[in-house]
Write a protein that binds this DNA or RNA. Structure first.
Length: 418
RNA sequence: GGAGAGGUGGCCGAGCGGCCGAAGGCGCUCGCCUGCUAAGCGAGUAGGGGGCGAUGAGUCUCCUCGAGGGUUCAAAUCCCUCCCUCUCCGCCA
């Protein structure tokens, strides 16, 4: 959620940010609505103050004098209720619109609306050529008996997979390796709940805008998270952190569930885009002036991991119009997938500034003892499913076996999947 | 699933329908004092919104005692609904 003060002082900032996202919102009308709801609230409060003032004298009065003051206070109470109701209604109308507005875009997020408008800011250089025809992860994985999507379809439907054998073990190696690497940078490992309340999804900005991507469990009024960002962020909801606790850095591991609504026909082959996958996610709570640096810091962590795994990659700065609601700026790392012959997203890191913190009411005491909103920053450490298939495709041999990346061998206990 | 207890400020804990956003304690902050430490003394210490004012200082005001309704001139206090936590029993990875 945005700071309402934007409407009163920096309306043009808000307007231009919305424009960069390709949204047409009548900002002036919102400002008018905001002004009138405050006006009504002030009127209601005056009535209430008068009523309370009058009410205080009642216990000291007797007889007819008491009766008349009670009557008078009663009238004020009625007027107050009416006025308050009107103010509440305007508040609701205003809030309903306000919560749907996405975060301000960072000036350094590129112009543009689409994935293609992202700007490459870095790459690992030319992609090394294989001296044989590359196969894709599904062909390789099926042949090796470590990926089974057909039986997964029987059990669960499309966009699911069984991961088996050494590939399953490789997941554990990958996760533990990533956790150790992040531990070097003082990220605290966390296994969060993956079923959360509505408030956690609202607070992180996934509700209401992305609600159609979220699985729900109606019987218990809970939702399956699409990323551990949700429980990690909501973990500190309604808290006032002390300044010396910051930055707080977590490395959360969880299964992620995504409905992938509206992606029919897209990435239907194999387990590249599935309804369920595991992920190690970095999440930081920082002071406001630190979030930009923290965003770069998380990108560095991602680059360390991706380059240690030896994937060719490129880093893109995502276009303003392609950002999620809560992000002001986002970097994606795209790894090279030889089987697809192109770069695909393997990590993503976003600076959500105070957007989530405001919704979740996560604050800290600054040096003057004032409560201020923290900034939150998130980033993928390892999206396990995609990383596994990036390994399969990049480490495949002419014989159809898959070598285990050097850094994972001590964790895996084997060197090759065959 | 069954039975019971309880939700008040960072924590503990009191609270006759008005003098209660709330005693007391702990903790914390600042100051004084003690050669260190501990103790002692004094002061301060919930959050959110709105008005006036310059998006300052200040000042006025409203809301919040798990949440939402209700009764009343007036609710932490009375009534209703819901949520959550804890304990015991049962079942269970």
């Amino acid at each position: 959620m945005l700071d309402v003060a934007l409407l009163r002082s920096d309306r043009h900032v808000l307007a231009s940010s919305l424009e960069r996202r390709g949204l047409s919102v009548d900002v002036d009308a919102l400002a008018v609505l905001d002004a009138s709801r405050r006006e009504l609230r002030a009127q209601a409060e005056e009535l209430r103050a008068a009523q309370k003032e009058l009410g205080k004298s009642i216990s000291k009065l007797e007889g007819s004098e008491k009766e008349s003051v009670i009557a008078e206070a009663g009238e004020l109470a009625e007027e107050y209720k009416t006025k308050l109701g009107e103010a509440d209604e305007l508040d609701e109308r205003f809030q309903a619109q306000w919560v749907t507005l996405p975060n301000l875009t960072d000036p350094t997020a590129p112009e543009g609306m689409e994935e293609e408008d992202a700007v490459e800011i870095r790459s690992s250089g030319p992609v090394p050529a294989l001296d044989f025809e590359a196969k894709d992860h599904l062909d390789l994985g099926s042949a090796l008996g470590v990926i089974d999507v057909e039986r997964a379809a029987k059990v669960s439907g499309s966009r699911f997979g069984f991961i088996k054998g050494k590939l399953a073990l490789l997941e554990f190696a990958l996760v533990r390796w990533a956790m150790d690497a992040l531990g070097e940078h003082n990220f605290e490992p966390v296994l969060p709940p993956v079923l959360v309340r509505h408030s956690a999804l609202y607070g992180t900005g996934f509700f209401p805008s992305d609600a159609e991507q979220v699985y729900s469990v109606p019987a218990d009024d809970l939702f399956l998270v699409g990323t551990s960002e949700v429980p990690l962020a909501a973990m500190h909801a309604d808290e006032i952190l002390s300044r010396d606790e910051l930055p707080i850095r977590y490395a959360g591991f969880s299964t992620c569930f995504r409905r992938e609504a509206g992606t029919y026909g897209k990435d239907t082959r194999g387990i590249f885009r599935v309804h369920q996958f595991d992920k190690v996610e970095m999440f930081s709570f920082v002071e406001p002036d630190q979030s930009s640096d923290e965003h770069e810091y998380l990108l560095e962590r991602e680059l360390e991991l991706v380059s240690a795994l030896g994937f060719p990659y490129r880093v893109v700065n995502v276009a303003a119009g392609d950002l999620g609601a809560s992000a002001s700026k986002k970097y994606d790392i795209e790894a090279w997938f030889p089987g697809q012959g192109r770069y695909r997203e393997i990590t993503s890191t976003s600076n959500t500034t105070d957007y989530q913190a405001r919704r979740l009411r996560i604050r800290f005491k600054d040096e003057e003892g004032k409560n201020r909103l923290v900034h939150t920053v998130n980033g993928t450490a390892v999206a396990v499913g995609r990383t596994l298939i990036a390994i399969i495709e990049n480490y495949q041999t002419a014989e159809g076996t898959v070598a285990v990346p050097e850094v994972l061998r001590p964790y895996a206990g084997f060197d090759v999947i065959e």
